[in-house]
């Protein structure tokens, strides 16, 4: 079971080419980070994975189903997507209603609705906000509300668009815990992010995009070792990695490793 992009091209209706010849396989349960400049085609690429965009050439196959013949809503049962801006996604008057929305819309029974909502709220650490209006809570917490709402669908694949933007230390820790939980639960998480420290700490597989192409696909150590990739995608190494490189010790991701080497 996997998401497969086979020679996928995507062109906007006005003719601009957003993605060219994407080839990617993401197996169920795999956790990957997608990095690159704004405008590199990351968001269009993930929107191809959840059916918001249909490929103009090539095929996108999710668990054996070709996305061409399905509507976005139909594919959303397999691939969940948390938008970068929570205000674009949240539309209920209380956090509880928002988190319960998917379950209610799909007519699950009341007990199931409650249990999923509580489970998602606990995972995202938003239990104390359940009865509050989303417009009254800080932006970074709203992010977790929109994540919780999508989690209740229990999709095998979850896409997070820049979850770390604007988050403080507690927020980033919560995200790490969430990623860990999802992996144990056998669910795949695809994260777009600009935070290289977060990538180094949480991902074993990184896909680098630039100019609409995928230019690299490997472990963080492999990616950060290639200067050409870093400069083409305009990404920077995490601090520890930069330090170890300058000291001539190669690309080290973890602080403990560097300490032991010295």
């Amino acid at each position: 079971m996997s998401i497969e992009l086979q020679h996928v091209h995507f062109r906007y209706p006005d003719g601009t080419l957003a993605n060219e010849d994407l080839n990617l396989v993401i197996h169920e349960g795999e956790r990957i980070a997608i990095v690159g400049q704004n405008g590199a085609g990351k968001t269009t690429a993930v929107k191809l994975m959840n059916g918001l965009h249909k490929p103009t050439e090539g095929e996108v196959i999710i668990n054996g189903i070709n996305t061409r013949n399905k509507s976005t809503a139909q594919i959303s049962g397999m691939v969940g997507y948390v938008f970068q801006n929570p205000d674009d996604q949240i539309f209920k008057n209380t956090v509880r209603d928002e988190v319960e929305f998917w379950s209610r819309y799909n007519k699950l029974d009341e007990k199931e609705i409650q249990s999923r909502a509580e489970w998602a709220a606990k995972l995202c650490d938003i239990e104390k906000y359940l009865d509050i209006n989303p417009y009254e809570i800080p932006y970074s917490t709203k992010k977790f509300v929109s994540i919780a709402a999508v989690l209740t669908a229990r999709n095998p694949y979850l896409i997070l668009d820049e979850p770390t933007a604007g988050q403080d230390v507690a927020g980033v820790e919560c995200l790490s815990k969430l990623l860990h939980y999802m992996e144990q639960d056998g669910k795949s998480v695809i994260t777009i992010t600009h935070d290289m420290e977060f990538v180094a700490d949480n991902f074993k597989r990184v896909v680098v995009m630039a100019h609409g192409h995928i230019i690299a696909d490997g472990t963080p150590a492999e990616i950060f070792a290639e200067e050409s990739i870093l400069s083409e995608a305009k990404i920077k190494k995490p601090q520890i990695c930069e330090l170890s490189t300058r000291l001539g010790l190669g690309n080290i991701m973890k602080i403990e490793t560097l300490v032991n080497k010295l």
Binding site: T72, A73, Q89
Partner: peptide, 19 residues
């Protein structure tokens, strides 16, 4: 533009928007 994005996000949650 906002309305468009919001509609997209709703369809991403399983709300049928085409048809």
């Amino acid at each position: 533009k906002s309305a468009n994005t919001i509609m997209e996000s709703q369809s991403a949650r399983g709300v049928e928007t085409s048809g």
